[in-house]
């Protein structure tokens, strides 16, 4: 197995808008890859297509050498792709434990009972929510909800983790904890595709970056090079001017 994820000529159209335009890239196992770009450049749309939340308008996506294009989200999740959402999606009728448990129960291993609860507790501890499993998620703060989402993604033992601005909204101290956490996930052998606007965090975690603008990839390479690319600078500055 060479690549964890291979995106080949993928496009997505919303009516007249081409939100993702013929994008191709591949990710090697164990990498943390940054997916950057100004607002509205198509990053979330790209993640949505990889996780099966949206259908592609054209192109192919392969996960661990098998085509997953067109598969429903739950099947892709079962193969080992987990994600967090830019706008947190919690299950407010359930407790913190149950919010994470569902992903263990319906994930690759279909755990249930004591084994599942152990695994949930372990992952709650991983994200810094130990001992709080009985709290209703409706009462959690935004930051804790983001932690919950990461625990829910991790409890399924994913091969590929998609993080959509998971670090957004953290204060500097929390940001440092978050960055350390992401690095620790990498040490577990998880491949991560990270959408992020905070450049310090990107530099601290990603060896490689893919930069999108207006739906197309405009740079792809080692982080320093990609961020120094004149076209990338123009894309971001142009965005600021607008």
């Amino acid at each position: 197995m060479s690549e964890v994820l291979k995106v080949d000529g993928v496009s997505r159209r919303f009516g007249g808008l081409l939100a993702v335009n013929n994008v191709s890239f591949a990710i090697e196992p164990g990498q943390i890859v940054g997916l950057l770009g100004p607002n509205g450049s198509g990053k979330t749309t790209m993640l949505n297509m990889i996780s099966g939340a949206l259908k592609v308008s054209g192109g192919q996506i392969a996960f661990q050498d098998q085509l997953v294009t067109g598969l429903p989200a739950h099947k892709i999740a079962k193969r080992g792709v987990a994600r967090t959402f830019q706008l947190v999606r919690s299950l407010p009728s359930l407790t913190l434990t149950e919010n994470v448990l569902i992903s263990a129960a319906y994930g690759r291993e279909r755990l249930w009972g004591a084994a599942a609860l152990d695994k949930v507790a372990e992952n709650l501890a991983l994200v810094g929510l130990e001992g709080r499993g009985d709290e209703p998620v409706a009462d959690l703060t935004y930051i804790d909800l983001k932690r919950m989402e990461l625990a829910r993604a991790m409890v399924a033992d994913p091969k590929l983790l998609l993080l959509d601005e998971w670090l957004a909204g953290l204060n500097p101290a929390e940001l440092q904890i978050g960055v350390d956490l992401i690095r620790r996930l990498q040490q577990r052998g998880i491949t991560i595709l990270l959408v992020e606007h905070i450049m310090d965090a990107v530099r601290a975690t990603c060896a490689r970056c893919i930069v999108m603008s207006a739906g197309a990839v405009i740079a792809d390479g080692p982080t320093d090079q990609a961020l120094a690319d004149p076209e990338v600078i123009r894309a971001y500055l142009g965005d600021d001017d607008a």
Binding site: S51, G52, A53, P72, A73, H74, A77, K78, A82, R83, F85, R89, S90, L91, P92, S93, L94, I102, S103, A105, Y106, G107, R108, R152, A156
Partner: peptide, 11 residues
Amino acid sequence: DDEVAARHAGV
């Protein structure tokens, strides 16, 4: 609660 979240958890 949220069908999208449920789907992505494997349901």
